[in-house]
Design a protein around this nucleic acid. Structure first.
Lengths: 114, 114
DNA sequence: CTACAACTTCGAGCGCACTCTAAGTCAAGC
DNA sequence: GCTTGACTTAGAGTGCGCTCGAAGTTGTAG
């Protein structure tokens, strides 16, 4: 898979993918014989997971912490699990806050009448 | 109410409040005899409402559109209601997306075992 | 009267997450 | 063989939402 294919399948741009690699969010890509980046399905899965973290508002610096633990391999599972659990709880709180705001918005909208 | 009081009651800083006024998110404040900003409860309500818009991810430029309609007064209620309704729907979609991501996170966390 | 904190304006600076440009290399189709 | 377009690197630029600093004025407590 070339960088343009990965871009098409993830919704990121090739620029953004190179940026992610540069800052360490993605491991250095394999290269084909002409020096172009060549990706496999595992990379796609990783980028999609990063997308979930991004959707849920995790800052890049935290994703980097997670990526570093992942790169460190065995022995970091506990830390990774703890990170995700903390993040999960924070997201759940945000969902509650947003739901409360929805009520406020609904009340305000209703206040404008028909 | 002085700017420091409004700051304390809204969680914003005095710097941020002046910034909001500068960009037009808040109407020009009344001044006391020494030129200091003096706020009433109505302003507090408005800032709290802005907080709800902010919490739900509305960009400042959209808040500005809303603030301008509000400042224009009568006759803009329909537009304001439509804006809020659109925003409400977008927020509801985000809540759904976040909830789906929570499932992904839970699955990932469970995958790490105990 | 004197500190000192809080206010004022103006404008610069910052952190985040991209986003794009420039200049060059490489590969596939006509 | 040549054009076209995707790839490469390094580094600069962008938009958002603040955030802070400097320099000066005003109000209050001791």
């Amino acid at each position: 898979m070339k960088i343009s294919d990965l871009a098409a399948r993830t919704g990121l741009t090739a620029h953004t993918i190179r940026y992610y690699e540069r800052i360490g969010l993605m491991p250095a890509a394999q290269r084909d014989r002409s020096g172009h980046r060549a990706y496999d399905e595992r990379t796609l899965v990783w980028v999609e997971f990063l997308g979930h973290l991004k959707t849920t508002g995790m800052p890049i610096r935290d994703m980097l912490d997670y990526a570093r633990l992942r790169a460190a391999g065995a022995g970091t599972e506990g830390q990774r699990k703890a990170m995700l659990a903390r993040h999960r709880d924070a997201v759940a709180l945000r969902v509650v806050a947003l739901t409360e705001c929805l009520d406020v918005l609904d009340a305000k909208i209703a206040g404008y009448g028909d």
